[in-house]
Design a protein around this nucleic acid. Structure first.
Lengths: 167, 167
DNA sequence: GTCCCTATACTCGGATAGCAAGTGTCCGAGTATAGGCGG
DNA sequence: CCGCCTATACTCGGACACTTGCTATCCGAGTATAGGGAC
């Protein structure tokens, strides 16, 4: 699994905690998390293409959540960043080899593929059960108040600098 | 996920269907499935190291299941072939950046990692619920009798050739 | 004083190199067998 | 005829290239703003 998944989830959590109407550029999100700016931007583009975040160009622009935090779950983000293909790919080797039978013989996917996909469905269901709102709620009670306040202050400072004249 | 996972699962199913006491070389398993022999051998080695299959050298040697089919599940095979590491790797980015707090502040893994790992646990549980014996049972009712018989005949022919004098 | 225009700086978006892990392959070490030889 | 020995061929096991996809980066297109000038 790509590291970008973790970064985008963290970024979405930060975006959900922003004051209403505020956007945050990819560069600032990268600075906040201590990750490569250009690479995080690439993954945020994927999230934007999937309709998870909304991007706005120009000064005062940046990224913001496209939907309420309770409407964005971890499955959406994971599929957007890592691709929506299944991890297990059935290559239909039952059709190959000396006694391989043509596809017309079989009415259903082979038992192996069905079992693997069933496991992936369980994984997806568990991911879909957790939303950004849930994560934000957990953070508010598990992270020390001092750290939360420092984060809020940092966001405030970013916004103030953005409002300042470019001179 | 590596293609080798699919190959080894198929191979284990074939090994489970073998007459009692018979072993099958990696080259024959590869021929049966129409996959690269040397590469399948590499993955079978991993399965052998994990105690899923047992290898025997020399003529009349080959691979056989190390345990009864009901005692081998898909999770065992997947972890053996693809590695037992988690797909999601938490890089602890909450400790990085301008307001990153040291690890001593936090008493538990971050909510994001916990959610991702919970999903992986669900995936593992579902995989562990399916055994090679289950797959074999499914095959016996879903695969046409003619194909099953052709497969059994092919295995018989391999064994006969192995008993023949090397001349 | 008010409105408009222009220059600016900042933002995202896609196109471009670098690298690591998976993919695929090969040859050498070890062993049970088959045949030949001696008793 | 029986038992032992040797040569053989077959097996796995680990070490060696190659390719695809992920990692990381940069520069160009587009836009809201800020300031200056004209009315």
């Amino acid at each position: 699994m790509s590291d970008g998944v973790e970064w985008v989830i963290h970024s979405c959590t930060v975006l959900a905690a922003l004051p209403d109407g505020q956007a945050l550029p990819a560069a600032k999100l990268a600075e906040f998390h201590g990750v490569p700016p250009a690479y995080l931007a690439k993954h945020l583009q994927a999230a934007a293409a999937a309709g998870i975040v909304r991007s706005e160009p120009g000064p005062r622009g940046g990224y913001r959540l496209a939907r309420p935090p309770a409407q964005v779950n971890l499955l959406d983000i994971t599929l957007a960043v890592d691709g929506d293909g299944t991890a297990f790919r059935c290559t239909e080797i039952r059709q190959k080899g000396p006694i391989g039978a043509p596809a017309s013989i079989y009415r259903r996917p082979c038992s192996i593929a069905r079992a693997m996909w069933r496991a992936e469905d369980a994984w997806r269901a568990e991911l879909a059960a957790t939303t950004i709102a849930d994560l934000l709620g957990d953070l508010l009670v598990s992270v020390p108040a001092q750290v939360l306040q420092a984060g809020a202050e940092w966001v405030r400072a970013v916004e103030i600098n953005r409002r300042r004249a470019p001179s």
